[in-house]
Amino acid sequence: MGRINLTPLRVRKRALADLQANRIPTPPVWLEVLADVPPAQILTRQQPQQHPLVQVRTKSLPDGKTEQVAIAAPTRKPKSSKRSRMFAPVEITYEEDQLRKQFFQDHPWELARPRTVLETTGDQHKNSDYSKGLQQPTVPLSGESVVQRQLHLLQTVPDITTDQAYDIARREFYTLRRQEATRRRIAKEEALHMGAQPERSILHWSMQIENKHYNDWEQWSKSQVMEQIQRSAAFSGAVAPEAEQKMLGGDGQDPRGARRADPFVAEAASRAGIMTGTL
């Protein structure tokens, strides 16, 4: 198992040699197949494919005609000038990259919208024609539509600047998003009017959970307070309600007034964070 193992490439050569030397009785079934369809050349180092940034623009000429020109950006200097990097693949760049970056910097919440990145056939963009606007068949509206529309404008409209194209594309986008929102709102109203029962919201569920916790806590705190009362009663002895009233010196219609005055209870209650009067 050396670094470069050429045995798999030489199976046919070796089979022929084996056959000639009678090491194998019959030729293997694949012998002719490998002659008909030989393995491809491997481990050949070729110059890597270059990906220059090409911008297509339409320019108006002095005679009133327009001309589409392709402007290739000067290739960037490679990061390393080592000879070993000569065959290394280079970065793929497109003009859209910059447009996309700008759009999503300005509209970061567009990235938060759910989006399907899975492709079924790969022909999703086959029928797209961005000269007709942002919305394309089989392509849902997203920031990518803006980028493609902007690129189309940049390539076809004479002497347009990037900012102008951006403004046109994003205004169209805003209009479509507004329409979408209105359509969704009306659909919801309609559905509710016709008796639809929407799924309970996350807020509803969380409130339910919270309520449950509050109730549990209330039970627990009540039991704690009762425990404290019992403990203090065992310590100081049971006190008759009349004596209690006397001790308190109040009118004492409510026997719970005594508990309120009890320091243990008050402490327990304050620890539990509730008013003793409610118990």
Partner: peptide, 9 residues
């Protein structure tokens, strides 16, 4: 060894 199969980065 795969350099010839790679389109770019």
């Amino acid at each position: 060894g795969n350099s010839s199969y790679i389109y770019g980065i």
